[in-house]
Write a protein that binds this DNA or RNA. Structure first.
Length: 581
RNA sequence: GGUCCCGUAGUGCAGUCUGGAGUGCACGCCGCCCUGUCAAGGCGGAGGUCGCGGGUUCAAAUCCCGUCGGGACCGCCA
């Protein structure tokens, strides 16, 4: 190495020693006769004292420099308690500029810190400069520590790291595929994997028993703050297991991560809740348990109501807005707008007076009978001065609306215990959900096993059948999900029948898997975690782009390299894109 | 595919509702001064296709239409 010490490690005990540092000029304080440099390398920052006015004047921000000097205790009164290296400084005997820097597109050091201080596109465009900044670099370091711990835990549990192909065929995840043309077979295309799902099941047939992989996955869908077309999963599969094995492994992994990275001791086992309960109580399959405000089911209360909006609806539910009884008309209207923004017609509501009774003047209350009004606050769990919002209609969409409303209220009223970590298993997901075309589709994927109670009759009631599928959720964020798989051919065929997949289609799509399953497949199952999301949670940010080294913009483009680009006619011809199938 | 927000100096913003000279702030940049600062300080200076195109108007950063880019959300997507 061309340096002898890392700048951030210098301490008072080093005083008197000659050192050579290498790094970047983070700041320069030129006093004419003496110049102070904050020299930054990956380890931190140390102050360099330069008594050569000419050399000091020539330096600029982000010049890459090599400094020879002697560590000295700073003069009395000049220590900087805010820096780990603040008691010492390096008195330079020689300074060499290794490379100069052009004027910067945004400040590396400056009064503006943090991820929001520069527009994202500018940051990604010059990500190599963005990552010189403390916060962005810390996010990547957190991610690296996370994956390191993951590998340690997985290896300690005898899991085998196996890579699977990226150039492959469509996997049954339901999203759009990214496609890659194949020069050697014009008109034929690879799909990039949406997950290693099929391969990991094959590895179970292969007898590996315990597999894991940190795998890149590709899904050609629209963006969100927590979604990007190219992302990373921790993919796990094991044989001869049941749900408890997955839960125990996951809890071991997550408690280790939270302990080592955040110094937080998570209580185990994690809470468990069925999907049905999660929807009923929280209107979400990933409930945020950091606050209460559970939904109430008022279907019984309003059975036989003459109020047109609630009458004849399969479900009427409510959520309380604490203190909402004193909202202005304008504030109530803005909640209406919020609901309409989510595709609802509006939000029926009543206000509770200070006497604890429903104020009868409201637009909904005046349509309700005296009996309905009397019991309503208690039935909805509302107290004096609250507001009650209703959703009526088909159960699941109405619950989802109330669930989203519950979250919005929780945020709006500051009800969320921000420092808490509320982990939760959501279990017993439905096997199928209706498609627009009147058929059924697998909620998880078509290899998910039914629960024992439904094993023999899920095909008779596809809408009611429950799956051995599970998600692990923290604070309303889904960290991972998985299932116990089907390992018997007959049951697998029944699932294909329900989702309307013919034998021919099944054969052409997953024939290789079904073929493999003819040779004594073991009972198996697994789980996959969204590592970008997990890293973001551990790093304390909502945006997964912050924990990706070179993130893409919302249109799928890479602001740094300019990808994707048009191709030349030559490339087009060679790739065989235009060959008719 | 839909809704909303943003686009003004290198960076972050104000100005837009209510049209009147590229009007302004902070940081950065350039020059000079300065031997104990650490967001150093002082003095001076440069820097603008107000995203782009069209329209209305005597006059457009400002109003209208379109478009491009970015972001958030819905749809979609484990």
């Amino acid at each position: 190495m061309i340096r002898t010490r890392d700048a951030g490690t210098l301490r008072a005990a080093d005083a008197g020693f000659a050192v050579t540092l290498a790094g970047w000029v983070a700041r320069r304080r030129d006093h004419g006769g003496v110049t102070f440099l904050d020299l930054r390398d990956a380890s931190g920052v140390a102050q360099v004292v330069l008594r050569d006015p000419e050399a000091g004047r020539a330096l600029r921000a982000e010049f890459c420099v090599l400094v020879h000097g002697t560590v000295a205790i700073r003069p009395a009164g000049n220590a900087n308690p805010d820096l780990p290296t603040g008691n010492v400084e390096v008195v330079a005997t020689d300074l060499e500029v290794l490379s100069t820097s052009a004027e910067l597109p945004f400040p590396i050091e400056g009064s503006l810190y943090g991820p929001g201080s520069v527009e994202e596109t500018t940051r990604w465009r010059h990500r190599y400069l963005d990552l010189r900044r403390a916060w962005p670099a810390t996010a990547l370091r957190t991610r690296a520590r996370m994956t390191s711990i993951i590998r340690r835990v997985m290896e300690a549990n005898d899991f085998l790291d196996v890579e699977t192909p990226y150039l492959t065929r469509s996997t049954p995840e339901g999203a759009r595929d990214f496609l890659v043309p194949v020069r050697l077979q014009p008109g034929h295309w690879y799909a990039l994997p949406q997950s290693p799902q099929l391969f990991k099941q094959l590895l179970m047939v292969a007898g590996l028993e315990r597999y894991y992989q940190i795998a890149r996955c590709f899904r050609d869908e629209d963006f969100r703050a927590d979604r990007t077309p190219e992302f990373t999963q921790l993919d796990i599969e094991l044989s001869f297991l049941d749900e408890e094995d997955v839960y125990a492994l996951t809890e071991s992994l997550l408690t280790t991560l939270w302990r080592d990275l955040l110094d937080v001791d998570l209580p185990v086992p994690f809470a468990r809740m069925t999907y049905a309960d999660a929807m009923r109580r929280f209107g979400s399959d990933r409930p945020d348990l950091r606050f209460g405000l559970e939904l109430t089911d008022l279907s019984g209360h309003f059975a036989g109501t003459r109020f047109r909006v609630f009458a004849e609806q399969p479900y009427v539910g409510a959520v309380v807005l604490p203190g909402g009884g004193s909202l202005t008309r304008k504030e109530l209207d803005s909640w209406q707008d919020w609901a309409r923004g989510r595709g609802a017609r509006g939000l029926a509501y009543v206000l509770i007076g200070e006497d604890g009774a429903v104020r009868e003047s409201g637009p909904v209350a005046k349509h309700l009978s005296a009996e309905e009004l009397v019991g309503l606050p208690a039935a909805a769990g509302a107290g004096a001065g609250d507001a009650v919002f209703f959703a009526a209609g088909t159960e699941r969409p109405a619950q989802e609306l109330l669930g989203a409303l519950r979250l919005a209220i929780g945020r709006d009223r500051g009800l969320i215990e921000e420092s808490a970590w509320r982990f939760l298993w959501v279990t017993h997901f439905p096997m199928f959900e209706p498609t627009d075309g009147g058929g059924w589709t697998a909620v998880h994927h078509p290899f998910t096993a039914p629960t024992p109670e439904w094993a023999d009759r899920f095909a008779e009631e596809p809408g009611a059948g429950l799956a051995r599928a599970y998600d692990v959720v923290v604070n309303g964020i889904e960290l991972g999900g998985g299932s116990i798989r089907i390992h018997r051919a007959g049951m697998q065929q029944q699932v294909f029948d329900v989702i309307g997949l013919t034998r021919e289609e099944a054969e052409s799509k997953f024939g290789f898997l079904l073929e493999a399953f003819r040779y004594g497949p073991p009972p198996h199952g697994g789980i996959a975690f969204g590592l970008d999301r997990m890293a973001a949670v551990l790093a304390g940010t909502d945006a997964i782009r912050e924990v990706m080294a070179f993130p893409k913009a919302a249109s799928g483009g890479d602001p740094l390299t300019g990808a994707p680009t048009p191709i030349t006619p030559e490339q087009r011809r060679e790739a065989g894109i235009d060959v008719a199938p």
